[in-house]
Design a protein around this nucleic acid. Structure first.
Length: 192
DNA sequence: GGCCAGGTGTAAA
DNA sequence: TTTACACATGGC
């Protein structure tokens, strides 16, 4: 299983090339993108992020200070904009509190993030992997599809998917970042 | 013009 | 502990 998981990774890497994820200019932009992309097309998220950048609001301080209604307007294109506006502020507060604590374990980091309303497992893990840069395997809808297709593996339990990858790969930050990115690229290029 | 996207929280069984 | 449902815009 280990060898197959790795050889499929190499095939995807060969086919699609290095993805260099997450597509963001800063760690904080990863946090923002992770919240905004929840059950939402990335194209719609890009518009929202562009709006924030144009208004110079894509930084911790600005998000914490901006009014809810102004934030709602800027991120409207990402959908669920009312709850995302509120939750983006909560996530920003927690990010600000945690971002310089580099000695925290992945487990502690995850518990802290999961305690925030609006941060579920996938969002927490995306932030840990791509913003804190610690090796945890991110599971999303594309990853579930990938597991079904290549391994005929299905589960209703998020962490079973994580175990599937983490128990069969070396705990390598760059590998985890790139593998997840390649799965997304694979999914976008694969009809059902 | 319908379908659906890089989920999450809450209520009810 | 599991299941059903609300949340919402824009691309295709």
């Amino acid at each position: 299983m280990q060898k197959r998981l790795l050889s499929i990774y190499k095939e995807l890497l060969n086919q699609f090339g290095q993805q260099k994820w997450w597509p963001a200019d800063s760690a904080f932009e990863v946090v923002v993108g992770a919240i905004l992309t929840q059950n939402t097309n990335w194209k719609n998220v890009e518009k929202a992020i562009a709006n924030l950048k144009n208004e110079n609001k894509l930084n911790e301080k600005a998000i914490l200070e901006i009014t809810i209604s102004e934030l709602e307007n800027l991120i409207r294109s990402s959908g669920f904009y009312k709850q995302k506006a509120e939750r983006l502020k909560l996530a920003t507060k927690k990010w600000f509190e945690l971002k310089d604590k580099n000695d925290l374990s992945i487990d502690v980091l995850r518990k802290e993030l999961l305690s925030v309303k609006g941060i579920g497992k996938e969002t927490a893990d995306s932030i840990i992997l791509y913003a804190f840069e610690k090796p945890i395997f991110v599971i999303d809808a594309y990853t579930r599809r990938f597991c079904k297709k290549y391994f005929n593996f299905e589960s209703k339990n998020y962490d079973e998917y994580r175990t599937f990858f983490e128990d069969n790969l070396s705990q390598d930050l760059e590998l985890f970042k790139e593998y997840h990115a390649l799965i997304v690229e694979w999914a976008k290029n694969t009809k059902s």
